[in-house]
């Protein structure tokens, strides 16, 4: 079971539990991103905590505990939860008040638009954006977590970003003339949500 290294003398180190507590918000954020459901996310985090606690001897101190926990959570999701299908998203209540972020030359990026676009990406693309782009894991860690090659992660990342940019109408300088207009229409009409019939 969990060893508390601090008891062995020397500088006090955070206990295994402290590490878990510290990672709970990121674990839950990842669970919310994967499942799209607050209820499932909480179940997932609970399962993950129990598994992590029971397997704490398998965690190598000095390695990234976030990557280790994300691996457990992801495996749990794919073995137990995913077959139930992705529920209608009920995570809206989790978000804080409407926010926008500085989009540089593109002006302010509306976060609600951004989330709508993110929700439309294929699961593997959304996942890699969350792992690498949002939670700050390395390509290598993301590759380990997903059980694929680093090159696969990189290409998913590129495809995901390109597609997001298209959905948001900010696809880039080469297409500004055409896309500016499309983007403006998209933003005004909220055209991200409705799908083509």
């Amino acid at each position: 079971m969990a060893e508390t290294k601090a008891r062995e003398g020397g500088a006090p180190q955070p206990s295994f539990r402290d590490l878990l507590v510290r990672e709970m918000p990121s674990l839950r954020a990842f669970a919310l991103s994967l499942s799209g459901s607050t209820h499932k996310a909480d179940d997932l985090v609970q399962d993950t905590l129990l598994k992590a606690w029971g397997n704490s001897d398998k965690f190598e101190p000095g390695t990234n505990i976030r990557a280790w926990l994300f691996t457990i959570l992801r495996n749990t999701y794919f073995t137990l939860y995913r077959r139930q299908g992705r529920e209608v998203q009920d995570v809206d209540g989790v978000y804080s008040e409407k926010l926008s972020v500085d989009g540089g030359q593109e002006g302010a990026l509306d976060l609600a638009d951004f989330r709508a676009a993110l929700a439309r990406l294929p699961e593997d693309q959304r996942e890699v954006l969350i792992l690498v782009g949002a939670s700050g894991l390395s390509y290598e860690e993301a590759a380990d977590i997903c059980g694929v090659a680093i090159g696969t992660i990189k290409s998913r990342m590129n495809r995901a970003r390109t597609r997001l940019a298209q959905l948001l109408g900010i696809a880039g300088a080469s297409d500004l003339a055409g896309d500016r207009q499309t983007g403006a229409v998209l933003k005004q009409g909220g055209a991200i949500a409705p799908k083509n019939p």
Partner: peptide, 27 residues
């Protein structure tokens, strides 16, 4: 293609992703 994505666009997406995740973490 990947080269087609403007660095400013990449930057904007990166910021939005972090803000989105931060928001989830604060719940």
């Amino acid at each position: 293609g990947e080269a087609g994505l403007d660095p400013n666009v990449q930057d904007a997406i990166g910021k939005a992703l972090k803000a989105h995740f931060q928001d989830l973490m604060q719940a």
